[in-house]
């Protein structure tokens, strides 16, 4: 008997501001959709343990997609993308996510993303509060400058290794070696997209002065940040959450910027708290 995983993969083609994007996604489970965004320059294997977690997937339909240009999602099929510099914008990114959720006909999905996925979770809560049952911005902040660097694509260095080793100490040293190295390995695969992703992360994403417009009555927000994250520190997460009326913040101890990938068992303890908070807020709304 073959040792099959319960996780399945599919492609769906969506239109994103005129771009024809054939999107690869993995999924497992039943219940409220939990849509998961990987970090910049990476792909959906960061969610590998969540996707196979029976305790979570018995209540949630976990869906982890590859953003266009990442993993098995190619760049747009209908444009000469190689003739332009890739720079992800908040407009494009949020359009991509809503188009993907619409294509799968998801009802009130919870959106969870880490790093640039956490920042876009805040953007979704601001722009589309009616379309999501809640967001979990992980390692996110209102503004996160400083990582849109030329080093990620410098032709005189090994871009794969610069990206992978450049994010190495975003992870906590006590996270398991095999998981840190799996994450490192994923990062060797995404150097062509990494810098363009970080244009969103460090330049285009700027919600300073806008956080008070997020309506957590419509879309609950539970932020989580690891204490080994040097890019968006717990102080950054807390500062951001404080400016969103009704948002909650959870500090994660002993973990870094890629918590779901670098140490899933520890991350899960915090994720369960976040899901419970969103459930109770949703219950309070319908009561």
């Amino acid at each position: 008997m073959a040792n099959f995983s319960p996780v399945t993969g599919r492609y769906v083609t969506i239109d994103v501001m005129g771009d024809e994007c054939k999107v690869f996604f993995l999924e497992n489970g039943e219940g409220q959709p939990l849509v998961c965004q990987h970090t910049a320059g990476c792909h959906n294997h960061q969610w590998r343990d969540l996707l196979e977690d029976e305790e979570i997937t018995k209540n949630y339909r976990v869906i982890a997609y590859d953003l266009a240009r990442h993993g098995k999602s190619d760049p747009p099929k209908n444009k000469e993308w190689w003739k332009e510099e890739y720079k992800l914008t908040a407009d494009y990114y949020t359009e991509f996510i809503t188009a993907f959720c619409d294509a799968l006909e998801l009802e009130a999905p919870i959106f969870m993303g880490s790093s640039f996925g956490g920042n876009v979770a805040l953007q979704l809560a601001l722009r589309h509060p009616d379309r999501f049952g809640g967001v979990i911005p992980v390692e996110a902040a209102d503004y996160s400058p400083g990582f849109f660097l030329d080093w990620w694509q410098h032709p005189h260095a090994n871009a794969a290794q610069v990206c992978a080793s450049g994010v190495w100490d975003l992870m906590a040293p006590q996270s398991p070696d095999e998981d840190r190295w799996a994450t490192w390995f994923y990062y060797t695969q995404g150097s062509e997209a990494f810098k363009g992703d970080l244009y969103f992360y460090s330049v285009d994403h700027d919600l300073r002065g806008k956080l008070d417009q997020i309506d957590t009555e419509k879309c609950p927000v539970v932020m989580m940040t690891g204490d080994y994250d040097y890019l968006t520190t717990p102080e950054d997460g807390q500062r951001t959450a404080k400016q969103i009326k009704g948002a909650e913040f959870i500090e994660m101890n002993g973990i870094g910027h890629f918590p779901m990938s670098e140490n899933y068992p520890l991350f899960k303890e915090y994720l369960e708290q976040a899901l419970q908070k969103i459930e109770s807020k949703a219950g309070a709304r319908t009561a």
Partner: peptide, 8 residues
Amino acid sequence: PMYHGIWS
């Protein structure tokens, strides 16, 4: 935290 690498 923050003493765990040259980037941090």
